[in-house]
Amino acid sequence: MATTIMLALTSVVTMPSRGAEVKFGYVTSIYSDDKNIPLKQPEGVACDGKSLLLIADTGNGRLLRYIFKNGLLEAKTVEIKSPKLFYPIKTEINSKGEIYILDRKQRKIVRLSSEGEFRGYLNPAGIPPPAAFVPRSFTIDKNDNIYILDILSQRVLILDSGEKYVKQIRFPRQYGFFSDIAVDLKGTVLLLDGVNAVIFSAAINSAAFSPLTESLKQYARFPGSLTTDDRGRIYVVDRNGGSVMILGQDGAFVERQSGFGWKEGRLNYPGQICINVKGEIFVADTRNDRVQIFTLVE
């Protein structure tokens, strides 16, 4: 009932930084559902740009749907559970509200309706051999095209909204290990090499990836996930460092926000990050058993 929290409580939470352009303002944290069942090591978080917020509550093997509107979190939550969903670690919502979840235990992408009903596993038609793929991560662009980071065959599979194969882009020759994928509004595909802390990019019509950045190790210990905002800025989550790096669309380092810790505004082994058009930022604060909400302060 009393879970609505005023945006007025917003405070700026930032690490010492150089040439600050953007900062995270702390808004609130989500610790539990409306039945007071605590979140357990949530790794995924998705937002639709309006008011929908979806949390992959990994340790509890469920999804939670919240409404976050005008800076306020509505009290009612919807729990989504399915016998076909075991260990959700990443989630995305397409323009129709359909839900896609990466299940780490099954290493499959689960499809749910906007109401949370199981619709099957992502089963792309017409992909070049081998037909099998292992999705390390995935993302969905503004046209509902699906991008799968297939670590089994070292490629990015691009499917249309009907899950039909469109094209594939091979991984570059030299890389450490890819841990996440994102697509910006221009259609540029970004790959995050967590081991070397390097981002690779492939423009919309490109057939190959090339490095967008040099190693970002001086800013991040072990980057694990990334996303972009509507201005093309890139947000990279540093899992071991408990922070978020902000880069320009050219890959240039801009800012490092938050930092390792337990207090609100601090992060401990964060997972997925989501940013909506209103500049609201949602971070799965995995080892703090919560999701934190920030706003972008420019």
Binding site: F86, K105, R107, R136, S179
Partner: peptide, 12 residues
């Protein structure tokens, strides 16, 4: 059968 397979184990 575990929740989390070390990712490198399931790549090429």
């Amino acid at each position: 059968t575990k929740n989390r397979v070390h990712w490198p184990l399931v790549d090429s």
